[in-house]
Every structure is written in C-alpha cells, then in structure tokens.
Write a protein that binds this DNA or RNA. Structure first.
Lengths: 222, 222
DNA sequence: CGCCGCATCATCCTTAAGTCGAATGCGACC
DNA sequence: GGTCGCATTCGACTTAAGGATGATGCGGCG
C-alpha cells in the first residue's frame, strides 16, 4: 500500500450529523482516505493513542469534556506531530487568532462551503496553514492576555497536562497518581509552570489559566 | 433637621453622564435628599466608610475595580444594613436572578423610564424589593450553580473579603497584612470558607468562586 | 442577663506545596 | 561519536496550608 497516498483523518465533534457530513465531504477528497470519528474528547484521546500518527485532526472547539482552548492546547502538547484544524461555529477574529497562537494548523468556520473546506484541508495536508480570508488576525487582544498566551505556549506537553489538572483543583498527589509518576516529579513540573507563567503559586497559575479560557470575549454579562 | 425626611443616596457608576442623569432623576424625588457619587468601587467603599449609614446605594454591575457580582457580594457583606439596587445595561433574567440571590434590593435595567425608576426606588426605600415586571425569576440556573450561590451567601463579611483575596492568589500572610489581623485568623477564615463551600483546598475555592463570576452565561465562545 | 454568632488569636500537629540539586534519556547538531 | 539542550524524572529540604482545640471580646436578641 502506498502510504503517501493513504491519508488518515480524525473528525472530533459531538454532533453526529455534522460529523457525518464532514466525513462525506473530506472522505471524497482522496479515494483511499481513512476517516475516524470521535464524539467526545476522551474518544479522541484514546483514538490517537491507539492508532498512532494521524495526518489531520478536525476538532470542534465546543466538545464535551473540553472547555474552550484547553483541548487544543492539550492536543498540541500531547501529539505535537499531528496537525489540528479547528472547526467551530464561532468565527470571532479573537477566537480564531487564539487558536492559531495555540498551534492550530487551520480554522474552519462551520458556515463554510464544502468546496472551500476541501481546499483548506488540502492546504493543511500539504503542510500549510489555512485561515478564513478577510479576517484581521492582527491586534485586538490586550497586551496582558497576549503575553500570557505566549507564556502558555512555552509549556511542555507534560506541563500542560499538569496545568489542566491544577485547574481542576487536584492535589499534587492526585496528579502524580493520574500521570503515574512520583509526587516529586509533579512538584518539579508545577515549579516549572509557575516560572514560565510568571506566577508564585498554584492558585495564581489556575487564575491565569482561567483568564485565557473565559477572559476576554465581548463580555455578555453587562 | 427631620432625619426621617432626609434620605442619603450613593450613585456608583463609572459613567459620569449617566451618574448625573440618575442623580437628577432621583434627587427630585425628595426635596431634601442628599446624593453622593462614586466613579469607582474604591470611591464607593471609602464613601460608605466615611459617611456611615446610607439609605440606598445604586450600583452599576460593571464598575471599574469589580468583576461581576463580587462587588455586590462584597457590599452586602461589608455593609449589611445598606440596601443595594443594581443598575445595569444587562437585563438577562439569569443576571437579575443572581443579583437578587446575592441580596440586592432591586434591579433597574438602564433602559427603564425615569418614572418607573422613581417608583422602584420609592418601593425600595420603603423597605420593599423591586424587580422588572415580566421577568421570569424562577428556574434557569443549573442546580450546581444554584447550590454554590446558596453556599456563598452563607459567608460572613470577613469571609467574603478573604475569599476575594484568595481569588487574587494572595498568601495567607499577605491577606493577614491587608486585613490587619494575624495569619492564624486568616487560616480560621479560610477553613470556614472551605467548609461552607464544600471544597478541600484554597485552589478549589477560587475555582468555585470563578465559576459564579464567569461560568454559566449563554456561552458565547462557540 | 444569658446565649449565640462573629471575629480574633495562640499552639500544636499533619500534610501539601514549592525549591534545589541532580540523574537519566532522547533527539539535534557539529 | 560526542556533545549540547531539553524534557522528564526523582529525593531531600524548607515553607505554606490546613485541621483541632481552646480561649477572649463584642454585639444582638429572646
């Protein structure tokens, strides 16, 4: 089998209908494409662990089990070699920009036409990056947030995992158990995270992380 | 001077124009009313400390120095005797409901007519509670959040202050310094907070508190 | 007045958190 | 191959966090 011709995709979206449609659309792009589906973040995770390298993951930002960008950040950390294209109903420039900053290879608004999507996916498969045209990717975010995003992207895969568990309020001991390492190791990771984020305690770290997730959308509360 | 006839108000809003208009509107309600203004939360705070009992505070939810409901919660904790009426551009039922749960005496959407506002303020001054008509105050919020709101409202004034400082990532030592009490006292408060919120660590406490502030508005991010 | 809730503080103890130094392993680069 | 950097791992040590107990003062309330 010619491996260069057989692409392997994952479509991760909690909406089965949309998943199916997307599968149809991209499946016909290449005759020999192998398309996997994941309905939740856990599915996606075990799929990637089981199946090994993928050529592309199409990820819905609003998947069950993920709040916002964490999923993307986590994926990029855990499987640095797998390109991720975000598929989202939201097309605010700020969201798109943030996704690209977190290492996405592309951003597909769900409102896009099938033909455009195909072109975009082709671009990414060839190693490129695709974002919607007529979108202003520059500026917009406040300096503090931008700084924090930069800091977050310096975290190593394991550190991202630890930070996400910190944000769930877990103890070092619990994190150690989950990751199957010693508590000393977790502490080392936490220390590194604190340094990289420029904060002084785990509590401040989760506050900083929470800011990224919820912080700066056009505030709906007042 | 007849104290029962001289009402003392505070108008707290960061928008000077609106503050002025509101002052005009309520000032003429009673000939002898004394109206104070505050452009920021710190102003409001020092004003209340300096001037003592007020008959009413008109508080904008989106004031500088306050994120969301903390301001209300804090005011109600620090000055339990002063009725607070929220004035907000936002009129989502969820927000209104939350305000009332946190002890507001009324909620005035900024879109309200002057005459209606006057009636509402009169109602509150007579010890009543006023919310916009044709608003569904029941249901809506998920059980978890409602539970948490209930727990938060059992916190004592000082505990609210401590919780807000926890949410800023301060150490017990720093909180002790700010509040001019010993670290032992802070620890006592923290322990009480953890119990009341039903969590096990300061980090989980700030996560819980953050959920209330940003958590469950109709999600704008995707 | 006595009771109770709130706030304050101390002491002792256990556990969690965080820092420091250091070892290992792995991939990149010369 | 050797070396450099980096991620991951870990143990020892220091400091912070949190629980338990007990105690004091103060203001409201039946």
């Amino acid at each position: 089998m010619d491996s260069s011709a057989t692409y392997r995709f994952v479509i991760a979206d909690d909406h089965p209908l949309f998943r199916g449609a997307l599968k149809e659309a991209v499946g016909k792009l290449f005759g020999t494409a192998e398309v996997f589906e994941a309905g939740g973040f856990d599915d996606l995770q075990s799929l990637l662990e089981r199946e090994g390298d993928m050529d592309l993951v199409l990820l819905d930002l609003a998947m069950p089990g993920v709040r916002g960008f964490s999923g993307l950040l986590y994926l990029r950390a855990q499987f640095p070699g797998v390109p991720v294209v975000i598929v989202s109903a939201n097309e605010e420039p700020g969201v798109i920009r943030r996704c690209m900053e977190f290492g996405a290879s592309g951003f597909l608004p769900k409102t896009l036409g099938v033909d455009v999507m195909r072109g975009a996916i082709r671009t990414v498969l060839e190693g490129g990056v695709w974002t919607p045209p007529d979108i202003d990717l520059s500026g917009g975010t406040d300096a503090e947030t931008r700084d924090l995003v930069g800091r977050l992207s310096t975290l190593t895969p394991q550190q991202v995992r630890v930070l996400m568990m910190l944000s769930e309020g877990l103890l070092n001991k619990q994190i150690a158990y989950e990751l199957k390492v010693s508590e000393a190791t977790v502490k080392a990771h936490v220390s590194a995270i604190l340094q990289k984020l420029g904060v002084e305690s785990r509590t401040q770290a989760v506050i900083a992380a929470a800011k990224i997730e919820a912080g700066q959308w056009p505030r709906p509360l007042n």
